[in-house]
Amino acid sequence: MGQDEVLTVRGLRKRYRGRRGVQANDGIDLDVRAGQVVGLLGHNGAGKTTLVNQVVGLVLPDEGTIVLDGIDAVARPGQARARASIQAQANVPITGLTPRLAIELVGRLRGGERSAVRTRAGELIEALDLGPWADTRAEKVSGGIARLTAFAMTVVQPGRLVVLDEPTNDVDPVRRRLLWQQIRRLADEGAGVLLVTHNVREAERVVDRLAVLDHGVVLAAGTPAGLTASRQGTLTVELDLLPGATVTWPDGVVARGSSRLRESGSVPAEDAAEVVRWAQRQVHQGAIERYSLVPASLEDVYVELVEDERRDAPAEEVAA
C-alpha cells in the first residue's frame, strides 16, 4: 500500500445466507487515495452499502482484503474504524440536541480540542447555510437540515477516510451545491473520500475517479473523462413531450430511455443539425414542449453499462 493510498480493497466477496442466498459483493477491487473523491455509483441494491459496511468494520467479508490507512480492517476492524468517518444513509438521532451541539459533541468525542472544534463547527454551519437552524432543537428541523447536520458531524474531525453514503438525500438544490463544495474541499485538504451515490450528474462535478457497481460487481472504473471517452462524438437528445403526444425518432437516433413525458436518445455529432430541424418541427406540430442536445455524459455511460449487464445476466439472477 503506497503512502498516499488510504483504502485498498481486493477480491471482496459477501453473500447473505438467507433463503435466496444473495451475492451482495462479488470480487470487488477498489482504491481511494489521499486527496481523491472516489464515487461509487449504483442503483439501490447494487451492493454499495454492503461494501461500505465492510470497509468500516460493521460486516465481515466472506473473502478478500481491506486495508484502511495501513490497517487490516478485516483482522482489526476497531482500529481501522477509528481512522474513518462515515455518514450512513440513516441520520444519527440527535433528539434533545441542537445541530451546533451535535456537531461539537462528535468533534470532541473524536479527540478534537474544544476551541478548534467550536471554530470548525462554526465554519461548517456557515458554509452549509445552517445558521438559522444551528441552535434549534433537532426535533424542529427538516429532513434536509438533519442531513446536512449529519454531514457536518462526520467531517468536523475527519478521519483519513471519509465515507459518505448518499449525503445529498433530502437536501434542497441550493444547499446541495454548498454540500458538494465541502465534499470537494475535504479531499483538497488531504482526506480520501468514498462517495456512495446514485446522483450521477451531480457527483460528476466533484469526483476524481468512479466505480460503477451492479449486482455486486464493478462494471467499470476510471476517471470521468476516461469512462466517457467511448462516447466522444456522440450527443444526447432529450425531449419533453406534451401530454398524450408520441414521437418516432428519425433515422440515426438510437433510443436510450423513455418515461411518461420524457424521451432520450443518442446521435452522432455530424447528424445533430438534422435532428435539431426534426425536433423543431415536432415543437411546431405540438408533439414536444422542448428539446436539448448535450454531449454524452457520465450518466449516459452509467445507464448503458447497467442495461448491458442486465441484458447479459441470467434470468434467474437476483440483484444484491
Rank of each mutant, 00 (worst) to 15 (best):
V247E: 10
V67T: 11
A88H: 14
L242A: 12
V163N: 01
R76L: 09
A150I: 05
T234P: 09
A152H: 02
A203N: 06
D26Y: 04
T228E: 01
R310I: 10
L105V: 09
A82G: 10
W133C: 00
R17H: 12
P250L: 05
G107E: 02
A245L: 08
R201L: 12
I28M: 06
V171W: 01
R19A: 15
G131Y: 04
L40Q: 00
L51R: 03
A191D: 00
G70Y: 00
N53S: 13
K14C: 11
A121D: 03
L179N: 03
G216F: 01
D4M: 13
R176I: 03
A187H: 03
S264F: 08
S230G: 15
L12I: 10
L178Q: 11
K14D: 07
N199M: 11
D188I: 00
L213G: 07
E270I: 07
A127F: 09
A24H: 01
I86W: 05
R175A: 03
L12W: 07
L227M: 12
A46T: 02
L195R: 02
R10S: 13
A152K: 01
L161F: 02
L178A: 14
T246C: 09
G159K: 01
T50C: 08
A279L: 08
G42N: 05
A138G: 07
D172G: 08
Q87I: 04
Q282L: 15
R205N: 10
N169V: 15
I145C: 01
R15T: 15
R201I: 07
V32L: 06
A90Y: 14
P167A: 06
L227N: 03
A102D: 08
R205Q: 14
Y16F: 15
L60D: 13
V303D: 07
E309I: 05
P93E: 11
L178P: 05
G39A: 11
